[in-house]
């Protein structure tokens, strides 16, 4: 490996940009792929680029199938981000669980009584309103957004922002009935056609009702959706 490639990988990591190194194992020739362009001695076919793109999104390293194992793609993906709206009881479980699973966790709640260090030790708390907070954080394809407040004043602006972004997961806590009303509100905003992207009721159906159990089901669904895109 060229020292320059090593430096480029480290720079990308420092800036939380995904990058992948493609190595042709037979002769050691290498290229860097940043999700858009591939530069170096190994030329990837359109099919291999598509495969590499999926792997990079999932942060998974693997041989490129189209190359019959002769090209190995080492992905250096930044940790996926999980943004929660609502510093509520479920978030108190979901935040540490997601952190353990390798996510960068951010909890947004403008209500000072909820978003406290005592309730969320070590968690990144943002006490702005969801709209401006999400605009500042940035919603990309490595990000999942989960609304947990049940309060349209807080949840809706977040869903609006998420639906108009490439985030890989959107989940909204609330019953089927609550979600039907939510879709009506989105319809008024002209966003009804995007509503199927929202996972609601949120989480995989594991049968649990306790806050910790719901947190597990949400985290499980986020992980499932993250890897669903990988080949």
């Amino acid at each position: 490996m060229k020292l320059d490639y090593l430096a480029q990988i480290l720079a990308a990591r420092a800036q939380k940009r995904p990058i992948a190194l493609a190595t042709r194992l037979a002769d050691g020739a290498q290229s860097l792929y940043d999700g858009a362009t591939c530069t170096g001695a190994v030329a990837l076919s359109a099919g291999q680029i598509a495969e590499a793109h999926g792997l990079l999104l999932a942060g998974r390293s693997a041989p490129l199938a189209a190359s019959e194992g002769a090209i190995f793609l080492r992905c250096y993906a930044p940790p996926a981000k999980l943004v929660m709206i609502g510093a509520v009881h479920i978030a108190q479980f979901l935040a540490p669980m997601a952190a353990l699973a390798g996510f960068e966790v951010i909890v947004i709640d403008p209500r000072g009584a909820f978003a406290t260090e005592a309730r969320f030790p070590g968690v990144t708390l943002v006490t702005e309103w969801p709209g401006p907070a999400l605009a500042r954080i940035g919603l990309d394809e490595h990000t999942a957004v989960v609304t947990l407040t049940h309060d349209p004043k807080l949840d809706d602006p977040a869903l609006r922002a998420a639906l108009q972004s490439p985030v890989f997961y959107i989940g909204a806590l609330g019953s089927t009935r609550t979600h039907a009303k939510r879709i009506e509100r989105l319809r008024e905003l002209g966003l009804a056609q995007l509503a199927p992207r929202i996972h609601a009721p949120v989480g995989l159906d594991l049968g649990g009702r306790a806050a910790a159990e719901i947190a597990v089901s949400v985290l499980a669904q986020v992980i499932q959706q993250r890897y669903r895109r990988a080949p």
């Binding site: 020292l3 090593l6 430096a7 990988i9 480290l10 990591r13 942060g59 250096y76 993906a77 930044p78 940790p79 390798g102």
Partner: peptide, 17 residues
């Protein structure tokens, strides 16, 4: 694992330099 991979590469560069 992701973090340790960065540490490994950072160490490799440090040694090389």
């Amino acid at each position: 694992m992701a973090e340790s991979a960065t540490d490994v590469l950072a160490q490799a560069r440090q040694w090389r330099e």
